[in-house]
């Protein structure tokens, strides 16, 4: 049963990968796409397939892997199935630094956005961690969540203020806010990759500890788990992953929240299985959303972040309606 489901998941990923290369706002025939991938095609098809679709597919996979894993980690960490990786204020932090870059330093280039966003994500998670974990209990999930919401609110207020008083910043941010996989060529992608890989590596190492954590701190300690260490590792991983995803694609909502739910529904409650499944499911979801966004309003495109909400929200609502298992 589990293997058959794993087969479906892998099949779905392969299918959207093909779709992502073959389908777009510019309806090239499959034959032309195939020809272009083999090195043929004309200037237009080369631009569309190798210049646009290949890099955006790679970006989508990277952002998906990061969001899927970050979502699983944060939900296990907070023991809150509602937790979204953005709950630690990462999106708000990234948006803030990008807005500052546009408003005060006249930044326009997406390559610059990536690093600013990454910096913002890192700084905010650090601040959330410092505020949320000072005192007796280190990294108490509820307090961290509250700190994340609070800092996120402060920053989003400042960001809105900045953009409302600066039309250039507003214009740049309303695009960035929608989330997009376009325009991130390999020159932008490659430098971010080490952070993504580091985050994935930490997640894999920490995965067994997540099961212990899910049972509560006391049980986890009784089982010999180092709760404090696991928590710190999870936060480092979430920061790296979420920072990478937001830096690459902007604030893509819903993937990190929803994918672990689907994974749990398909493969049960073992965190290792959820982690592995999320790693496959999240890129599938992002690429599918991207493909839908490309064809929905052709010749224009709908940014991927808008579509993820449309794909994700109904699934989440269905899950909430059908299963009692989702309740805490």
């Amino acid at each position: 049963m589990t293997f058959r489901r794993l087969g479906y998941v892998l099949g779905a990923l392969a299918a959207v990968l093909l779709l992502s290369l073959a389908v777009g706002a510019n309806m090239l025939s499959p034959a032309v796409v195939l020809d272009t991938l083999r090195g043929g095609g004309d200037a237009q098809s080369q631009y569309v397939v190798t210049g646009l679709r290949v890099p955006r597919t790679v970006t989508g996979i990277c952002a998906g892997v990061a969001l899927g894993i970050a979502g699983t980690l944060i939900q296990a960490f907070t023991r809150n199935p509602l937790a979204d990786p953005g709950i630690l204020g990462v999106n708000a932090g990234a948006a803030f630094t990008v807005a500052v870059g546009v408003a005060f330093f006249g930044l326009r280039d997406i390559g610059g956005f990536v690093w600013l966003a990454f910096l913002g994500a890192l700084m905010v998670t650090l601040a959330v961690y410092v505020i949320g974990s000072a005192g007796r209990a280190p990294a108490d999930p509820i307090r961290l969540t509250l700190a994340g919401v609070a800092i996120g609110a402060v920053l989003s207020g400042i960001t809105t203020g900045l953009t409302l008083s600066n039309p250039d910043a507003f214009d740049a941010m309303r695009g960035w806010n929608a989330g997009s996989l376009l325009g991130r060529d390999f020159g932008v992608l490659l430098p971010v990759l080490p952070f993504l890989l580091a985050g994935v590596a930490i997640a894999i190492v920490v995965a067994p500890g997540l099961n212990a954590l899910a049972l509560g701190d006391d049980v986890a300690r009784a089982q010999g788990a180092n709760v404090a260490l696991i928590r710190v590792a999870v936060i480092v991983a979430v920061t790296l992953l979420c920072g990478t995803a937001t830096a690459l694609a902007g604030p893509i909502s819903f993937v990190g929240l929803m994918v672990p739910h689907v994974a749990r529904w398909l493969f049960g409650v073992d965190q290792r299985a959820i982690l592995a499944a999320s790693l496959l499911l999240a890129p599938t979801m992002i690429l599918l959303a991207d493909v839908i966004g490309r064809v929905l309003i052709a010749p224009a495109e709908m940014p991927v972040g808008i579509v993820t909400a449309f794909v994700g929200a109904p699934v989440l609502i269905l899950l909430a309606r059908r299963s009692r298992a989702a309740a805490p």
Binding site: N26, L52, G183, R294, A298, P299, A300, E301
Partner: peptide
């Protein structure tokens, strides 16, 4: 183009040749 009220038309970079 496929104008909205003759004012504006949005295109994807894939269709930049329009």
């Amino acid at each position: 183009q496929e104008w909205e009220d003759g004012l504006q038309a949005d295109i994807s970079p894939e269709n930049v040749l329009k």
